[in-house]
Design a protein around this nucleic acid. Structure first.
Length: 566
RNA sequence: GAGCGCGUAGCUCAGCCGGUAGAGCAAUUGACUUUUAAUCAAUAGGUCCUGGGUUCGAGUCCCAGCGCGCUCACCA
């Protein structure tokens, strides 16, 4: 693995011991833990509730946990084996039918059954739980995370949890003593750590226990038909309530590290106490802040607010999302579309800086953690004089807007003006970014455009412009075309202030002329040098654009576009 | 109320182990053969929330206060 090479880097391991980057700080806690317990391996866990599709928080947890794991491997020179377990609580009962799935009627009759016993509404997998698990895995694999998948249903029914379940029955009172004080009066009377699966209806039952037999490891309760039923706690007949489930899982698997959102924070003591009560050693924790939507509200799966992973990946790379997850995990950050361009460009900046940094700085550079210590080289382009530039997202967005084109070829045309040898083949990262910029433009920039109809005077000028340009059909000479723009402008919008002059000393052209062109034709106050634009966009196409501006087509098309989004 | 976090330029933020306050955008001026995607140069802009303390020295560490944000029923 790459970590093996990495730790050979002089001073890297020693410097890492001092690094203030948060993954190293968290990893140091684990190093201490290993020293304390003498354990020979370390287990990282992330939890996943499969009642819906994987969301952006799931990505954050796995990405951040991986960063800590890598930091730990460096600190320990990879001498302590590590594993990352992604645990899916797929035995959880389905509380409500999700809005975003087909065949909802079919699902309705399976409410409260374990997700792995609810049919897959997509008809592709053994169950809804299996379907969602598969989505999670596909998603994690897309990002190349190294992890092991674990299914709660599998762990419960195969007996992997039997030992801890028996211990829970034996120490039932101790666990209840931890739980009860945390509950409200009403809930206290019916609460149980065990949730039996009804043998008659197959539902997960939230019912009081009539008896918990610590010797025979059984529970007795009233089933849904009213009759008393006794079930063994083992073998998947019974699952655990949420908080006991956390503590029990940690104890059973020997989890050493698990992070979770701040909403869990008050429960940490409860989880840990239960884990200890069952003979386990509570793991190290890291509490991260929740994400906020555009209105400052916390993002939650149930509300469906904020932004999804798919949406982010429509406009930017996974790496930019990883950067967002790396930065300030303890701050409530807005996670919305408008943060995307900044993340992309910051990522590029960090990548660019990395090679020139000393080890200590590299360890604090986000790209170190995003790429497991080995970030790739940044793609840059060079002009004719060999000046190197990194094309930023902001630059591309600007470019798409002024080019007024969602055609990537037109954009490449502009880019090649700077560097003639650049292509999608030799700059795949840039090629992707061009696609992202077009998508971002279409969805966020284009809607803000405002076209207006030309005045009578402007109509005459624009008509003349189209006529004059038509004589240059086929030309790609930006300067010649720009001269045409000036010539027509001089006739209709001369600058009488005397401030501007043409090269041959004649009066210049009023600002109004250029404002007219941009406002009427591009729906913006500013734009590209029009001659260059026409050269790349095509003279005939430009003439057509002018005609559409004159007859009101641009106005109505934009209105249609806006209506189609409403 | 409790817990966590934040308060630095007009905006968004960086400032690692305490050592002369930084970046990007925005603004202003200029270069590039009149207007300009991308370039470059320059200028301007800050009581680092307040008050104490430690120190030769505090944006940075400690204490107190003020302001702001989020989380804290149930469910996971």
């Amino acid at each position: 693995m790459s970590i093996a090479d990495l730790i050979q880097t002089p001073d890297l391991v020693a410097t890492a011991q001092q690094s203030a980057a948060w993954p190293f700080e968290e990893a140091r806690k684990l190093v201490e833990r290993v020293k304390r317990t003498g354990q020979k391996s370390v287990l990282f866990e992330t939890g996943y509730g499969p009642s819906g599709l994987p969301h952006i928080g799931t990505f954050g947890e796995v990405a951040r946990t991986t960063m800590v794991r890598n930091a730990f491997r460096i600190l320990t020179e990879d001498k302590i084996p590590t594993r990352l377990l992604c645990f899916s609580d797929d035995m959880d009962g389905m509380r409500k039918v999700p809005d975003n799935v087909p065949n909802r009627d079919l699902l309705a009759e399976h409410l409260h059954r374990p997700l792995t016993r609810v049919p897959d509404p997509f008809g592709e997998f053994e169950s809804f739980g299996h379907h969602n698990n598969a989505m999670l895995r596909r998603f994690l694999d897309t990002f190349g995370f190294e992890y092991e998948f674990a299914s709660a249903t599998d762990y419960y029914s195969s007996g992997k949890f039997d030992e801890i379940l028996c211990r829970m029955a034996e120490r039932y009172q101790a666990v209840m003593d931890i739980m009860l004080p945390t509950l409200g009066e009403e809930r206290r009377s019916t609460y149980s750590c065990f949730l039996p699966i009804s043998p008659t209806t197959g539902r997960v039952l939230y019912v009081p226990m009539k008896q918990v037999d610590g010797k025979n490891h059984t529970v007795t309760f009233a089933d849904e038909d009213g009759s008393d039923v006794t079930l063994p706690v083992t073998g998947g007949h019974v699952k655990l309530q949420w908080k006991p489930d956390f503590g029990a899982r940690w104890a059973a698997l020997g989890v050493d590290f698990e992070m979770y959102g701040k909403d869990h924070q008050p429960n940490t003591v409860v989880y840990d106490s239960i884990c200890n009560a069952l003979g386990g050693v509570a793991p190290e924790h890291f509490v991260y802040e929740l994400f906020l939507d555009d209105k400052g509200q916390k993002i939650s799966k149930s509300k469906g607010n904020g932004i999804t992973i798919d949406e982010w990946l429509k406009y930017a790379s996974p790496e930019s999302l990883a950067l967002f997850m790396y930065s300030k995990p303890r701050e409530a950050k807005k996670l919305y579309f408008d943060v995307i361009p900044r993340q992309v460009d910051d990522y590029l900046t960090f990548l660019e800086k990395f090679p020139g940094q000393i080890v200590k700085e590299q360890l604090g550079n986000p790209v170190f953690h995003i790429h497991g210590g080995q970030p790739p080289k940044v793609e840059s382009i060079s002009d004719a004089e060999n000046h190197s530039t990194t094309v930023t997202f902001a630059m591309l967005l600007n470019l798409v807007a002024v080019a007024n084109s969602e055609d990537s070829q037109v954009l490449w045309g502009f880019i090649r003006r700077y560097s003639s040898t650049v292509s999608a083949e030799n700059h795949p990262g840039l090629a992707k970014m061009v696609g992202y910029a077009i998508a971002y433009y279409r969805d966020f920039v284009r809607p803000t455009k405002v076209y207006r109809a030309p005045t009578e005077q402007e109509q005459a000028a624009l008509a003349d412009l189209a006529k004059a340009l038509a004589e240059h059909a086929g030309s790609t000479d930006g300067n010649a075309l720009q001269a045409v723009v000036y010539e027509v402008g001089r006739a209709h919008f001369p600058d009488l202030s005397g401030k501007t002059k043409s090269p041959d000393g004649r009066p210049g052209v009023s600002q109004t002329w250029f404002a007219t062109i941009y406002q009427v034709l591009l729906g913006a106050d500013r734009g590209p040098r029009f001659g260059s634009f026409a050269a790349l966009y095509g003279v005939n196409e430009t003439c057509a654009l002018i005609r559409k501006g004159l007859d009101g087509t641009l106005l109505s098309e934009h209105q249609q576009f806006l209506d189609s989004r409403a």
